[in-house]
């Protein structure tokens, strides 16, 4: 009996240690990301001063003379993410308000999963859609626009991140208690007034956080921009021109025949580090908004 008990406790101690090791993997992943970015990025910054990298306005990695000013890549990234964010905000908020305030339960239970299919479609499929369908349609409106442009990539990316905004915002809206709605209705408010003056302000932290997380996702997205936005680092905010984003540059170098010790090869780690820091900051901001401004209801 006693030996049995001792054996059981030994087994438990071994298992707990094993489990702790598996949990450690996730911490090691973060350390691995930092190490694999920082070391080559450091070597890159020995060749290219940090200041020139961060504030340079010309990015010519694959031509002579080489220039490594990251601003064109950052501008391209922000331009596409901004277009996507506007689309996702307009479609996602409208959908969230409709699903939470207007739709009967049965309609909502069908529509919500249908919209969420959009979030599960592989991004390479969206890239295909942008290049072979959306761009030709846009060229009917803007005949001078070339095949690679920020607008098409941004619009399609907005469609991709729309369900993030609509689902998370709707969750926040549903948690606004009905007593607040009933009070407003009792005073004669219309549905629109209840939605915009009671529900949306009450769920604002969730809505803002959903938009921040969705835009952060757009900044980190690779395939759509790699396929449809172009491969020319271009410091512009004209959505009809081609742009290269940070992710698309990394993908371009990875698919090319760049030598492993070269400055160009190291530059993808510097760009990757900047990308990692940007998305990390936005994710922390998104969670902070929820924690700080959440409305607490009984």
């Amino acid at each position: 009996m006693r030996r049995n008990r001792a054996r059981r406790h030994l087994e438990q101690r071994i298992v707990v240690w094993l489990l702790r090791l598996t949990a450690l993997i996730s911490v090691l992943t973060t350390i691995g990301i930092l190490v694999s970015l920082l070391r080559p990025a450091y070597e890159f910054f020995l060749d290219v001063p940090v200041w020139d990298f961060l504030f340079g306005t010309e990015w010519r990695a694959l031509f002579v003379p080489q220039k490594f000013g990251v601003l064109p890549l950052v501008a391209g990234t922000i331009l596409v993410a901004l277009i996507a964010g506007v689309v996702a905000l307009a479609l996602g908020m409208g959908a969230a308000i409709f699903l939470s305030e207007y739709a009967p339960d049965r309609v909502r239970r069908i529509l919500k999963p249908v919209l969420e299919i959009l979030a599960g479609i592989p991004t390479v499929v969206y890239g295909f859609f942008a290049l072979t369908f959306i761009t030709p349609q846009l060229q009917l409106i803007f005949p001078d626009m070339i095949a690679f442009n920020a607008l098409s990539a941004g619009l399609v990316m907005g469609l991709m991140i729309m369900p993030m905004v609509s689902t998370l915002s709707e969750d926040a809206m549903v948690s606004v208690p009905n007593s607040l709605r009933d009070a407003a209705y009792a005073l004669g408010a219309t549905r629109f007034e209840v939605a915009t003056k009671v529900v949306v302000p009450g769920a604002l932290s969730g809505i803002v956080a959903s938009l921040i997380l969705a835009v952060s996702r757009a900044i980190g997205e690779t395939m759509i921009v790699f396929i449809a936005a172009g491969s020319l680092a271009n410091l512009t905010f004209n959505p009809l021109e081609q742009v290269q984003t940070m992710t698309a540059y990394i993908a371009q170098v990875a698919t090319g025949e760049t030598e492993q010790g070269s400055v160009v090869f190291r530059s993808i780690f510097a760009v990757g580090l900047l990308l990692f820091l940007m998305t990390l900051a936005m994710n922390i901001l998104g969670r902070w908004v929820v924690a700080r401004y959440r409305q607490k209801y009984e």
């Binding site: 911490v27 691995g32 990301i33 080559p40 980190g220 992710t247 990757g272 990692f276």
Partner: peptide, 27 residues
């Protein structure tokens, strides 16, 4: 330790997939 792991997992969920590619390439 558990709070560290939890926070870490939340952050990892938001890391762009191409950064994981860089990690895989590097490590």
């Amino acid at each position: 330790f558990s709070r560290l792991v939890q926070l870490n997992i939340a952050n990892l969920a938001g890391v762009p997939s191409i950064v994981y590619g860089i990690l895989g390439l590097g490590i």
